Amino acid sequence: MQETTWTSADQRGFLSLLNDYYQLTKPRLILLFLITTAASMELASQGEVNPWLFLVTLVSGALAAGSANTINCLYDRDIDGIMERTRHRPLPSGRVQPWEALVFAIALAMTSFLLLTIFANLLSGLLAMAGIAVYVGVYTHWLKRSSSKNIVIGGAAGAIPPLVGWAAVTGELAWPAWVLFAIIFIWTPPHFWPLAMLIQDDYARVNVPMLPVVDGDGVTAKQIFIYTLALVPTTLLLVYPFGVSGFLYGAIALVLGGMFIYRAWELMQAPSDKDEARSLFKFSILYMMLLCAAMAIDSLPFTQECLTSLTTAIAAMGTR
């Protein structure tokens, strides 16, 4: 009986430790990175991506993002221990030691690079490592604690996954890949700033100069609206002039963009309304998920065949 009890306790301890390491990777953030990577791969392959390459690239992307997020937790463990929403994380609570987190992050990064280099190509592996470097070096170390524009420039790290996906499929970076980069880059501030508006007291407590802390809710809401206005025409560049997406994607991008602009406008009218900020933050996530889904569905050969048949049928009806 005693042996069974100890075994059960050990199992619970092991599962708890696994969960701590899992939490270090910030899995909720990784999901969006994988969605943008998947959409990029579908677009680059015109809906005919190799399933094995698709799987390896997504796993490698998750490992690279997990590595970057773990290093971010390691670097920010001092302020995480003070902020209400982060003080129970594995590092500030002492459940994982800093050296353990560092070894874990290095192992994730090396595995990601090797998988991409072996099963995709060197360019995609180097881009994944560049994403880690930008997130850790530019955003976490340089800008996060020194500039209210930290998320604008540092957001480039979150825009690299589509480049990884495109490079994994094609071995190069064509202009449409950079459009995908630009979409994520411009989307990041109006996605993150509403969240920063909600938790600005935490940021103020640890002297992190997020835009709402430095310039207030009114200025932040205006900046969100400006970036949202810039986002919509950027998404349409995939339709024209680059022509890698078609009518279906373009229509969905316009509808989603209009909804995003409307919600950003609503927040600008009431910048101190926490419910509006929360609603916009949640919608920004849904927006990106649906936009990527539209890219992927539009790129499928089946979709193109259906649209071609529909266009032909309408044209035939018009000639009667």
Rank of each mutant, 00 (worst) to 15 (best):
R205D: 13
H141P: 01
I186S: 02
A156G: 10
P189Q: 01
I183E: 00
Y139H: 05
V164F: 09
I186H: 01
V164Q: 03
W178V: 05
V206N: 14
P189C: 03
A174Q: 15
H191S: 11
P194D: 10
A133G: 03
Y135D: 06
G158F: 10
W175A: 15
N150V: 11
A177H: 11
L163S: 01
V138G: 06
F185S: 00
A130M: 14
P189T: 02
L173P: 02
V134M: 14
S146G: 03
W187I: 10
N150T: 10
Y135F: 06
K144A: 02
M129A: 09
I153S: 01
L195A: 12
G158V: 04
D201V: 15
A167Q: 07
S146N: 14
E172L: 02
G154M: 03
Q200C: 11
V136S: 09
G158D: 02
H191P: 04
F185L: 03
K149G: 03
A177C: 07
Y135R: 06
K144V: 05
V213I: 11
P194M: 11
A174I: 09
L198Y: 01
A167W: 10
Y135A: 12
G171T: 10
E172Q: 13
V213H: 04
P161E: 06
P212T: 04
I183F: 00
D201M: 07
T140W: 03
F185D: 00
A156V: 07
I183P: 00
V213W: 08
I153L: 14
V134C: 02
